[in-house]
Write a protein that binds this DNA or RNA. Structure first.
Lengths: 200, 200, 200, 200
DNA sequence: ACTAGCGGGACGTCCCGTTGAT
DNA sequence: ATCAACGGGACGTCCCGCTAGT
């Protein structure tokens, strides 16, 4: 890897953390200078604007969540296990975050001072990929006979994602993981009893 | 009511909307000057700082959600109906918001750039009041025999609140109420089958 | 004189001094409170606005100049003596001002932050009265044979007034009366040799 | 020329016009923001205070008068022509002002609200340079035999300057150039008959 | 990549002219 | 006539995102 490319990656990582913790408006280039040890000019050599940097940082941040999720899904043996894996992996990510500050997707959604449609679009796309992941699991599950045919993919995705994300925020403000645990328990029940096809 | 007090209230209302839509950092006093038609002097007479104003605005904003919820609960005949009323009233508030920009409590929680512990404390307190409301409903329900004694108040509160709030955000970014509807349906089922005591 | 009327006159006098020294914008009601020993409310009882007060103060101030001038003219035996009296009286007024701060008419003219057409109109009117005074002296002088018929009243008024006022400003910034003396000497010559009809 | 220096010059020019028309107190930074198209930060980068800006603006403004005067003097062949040039150039400057609002020197002198000794000192210095210019012309004229040895430089300077400035103010309030014309005519006579040495 | 410089615009303080209750 | 309160708008500081010279 070229020297410059390395620097670029370091900037992105620091920026991802910064933006995820303080938001776009709340993070200044000066903060990033401090975090990276670079000067302004050194940063602007790699990104033409703060917005471009934020976009790159978001892409990176979003992968920190999406990749473990996809990996876990790939490993699980069947659809129900895959759904459970999604829930548990998300919980694990929260407990040991590779990226402090919560879920970058929802953080970006709720970053209300927007002004940046590109970022919002990125967040929406990432969310949709997540919904799609769940929908595909369900489709395969129906095909394989492990998931009820009546399960509405959008409904299931909504329940899983919204409960996880809502609980993450509750745990964050309370600084108490129990809220996440309640969500995980609930969703496990939900998956097993309302999504999975009862055996026999 | 004194003239100044009236002005103060108008400022608070406009500020609540502004902050709820753009966040603390994303809202400037200039924006508020525009929204209220006042000049800086007219605003700073009533609030000693932007932070103090944000605090007052949050209190107001949070009541815009808490009050309808409490009112709906007061009206419902029994515990199960009360829980359902919480869910449906929240949905109704989202559909016809008295305060644009989503739920002020979660917006404030997630406003990561803050640096304002007072605001976060306020948000936490408001969230706890909501959790308490649900816990009290459950307690009464258990007493009256309409709610399972095994229902963990914290768990139920987590499921209700996190799902509603998560779905609200999903509906917002998608600009599509269906996500909220899925959440409402799910929670209705949940309340009726997992919280309510089966008759007989 | 009623008590209130007395107070009103005192306010006007203090205001005239203040405005003449610091200008309309440069004088605040607070300054006037200090000068009069009254409270704001006490002042506003007598004048509906700062502008109205300024108008009254200017009328008063302008009379402090116009009256001595008119009196001196009334006393002088003939036109030439009257013109000389105008010059000398003005000089005397500068040396022992009843109103500190220079000539209120020109001060008001040059108070460039205007905003107040009424004040400018008042200043213009006062100036025109002065020009008129000189024109009438000349007319009488021509009639009586002591003034050249060729003397253009507007030209003479311009020379007298502009030189006096210009020299007043020069003396003020230099804090040195000699500039006024030069003007007086020059105008005396001018009156005697260019305006007066040579004897015989 | 550096970018910032260019900006600085533009600010000075706009400020000179503004201050000359409305005075120091009557001109706000907001006005200047509008006139320059810059924001506060852009202005205050170049001047540490409104007062410092006013000083720079006055220096610029005063040169707009002094330079044409000096240039005209440099061109004229002898002392009498030089004095006439001073008078006529001043008149021309009034008719086609490069700087609206009248003579900056006298405007500043009479800006009574000042509170700024530096500005008054600048105005006094500019006035003294003008007096000096006239004194030097006279001295050369005496040497060359075109000017009466009896002509008192201070007296001549007083007559010329005070009449011109007084008439300028009269013309301004009347919005009528005739007052300036009378002054010019008078001063031409004065120069030719009272200052110049009669031929032979 | 460093550094100084640029212009934008936020926040906040102060005081002004004016009003109204007493 | 007093005095507190009101809303306006001035000035000034700070730091931000960005540029340009080296």
């Amino acid at each position: 890897m070229r020297k410059g490319e390395q620097t670029r990656q370091q900037i992105i990582q620091q920026a991802a953390t910064l933006f995820n913790q303080r938001g776009y408006t709340g993070s200044s280039i000066s903060d990033l200078m401090l975090a990276t040890g670079l000067q302004k000019g050194g940063i602007y050599r790699h990104f033409e604007s703060k917005e471009a940097l934020a976009l790159a940082a978001f892409e990176y941040a979003q992968q920190q969540v999406a990749q473990p999720l996809a990996a876990a899904v790939a490993t699980a043996p069947d659809a129900v296990q895959q759904l459970l894996a999604v829930v548990e992996t998300f919980h694990a990510l929260v407990l040991q975050p590779s990226l402090p500050g919560g879920c970058p997707i929802f953080n970006t959604i709720v970053d209300r001072d927007d002004g940046d449609p590109a970022l919002r679009a990125g967040a929406l796309a990432a969310l949709q990929r997540w919904e799609q992941l769940i929908a595909e699991i369900l489709a395969r599950g129906v095909q394989q006979g492990s998931v009820r045919a009546s399960a509405d993919p959008q409904a299931v995705a909504t329940v899983l994602i919204s409960t996880l994300e809502g609980a993450l925020l509750m745990s964050r403000i309370h600084a108490d993981d129990r809220y996440m645990q309640h969500a995980v328990n609930h969703l496990s029940d939900y998956i097993r009893h309302a999504v999975a096809l009862p055996p026999g």
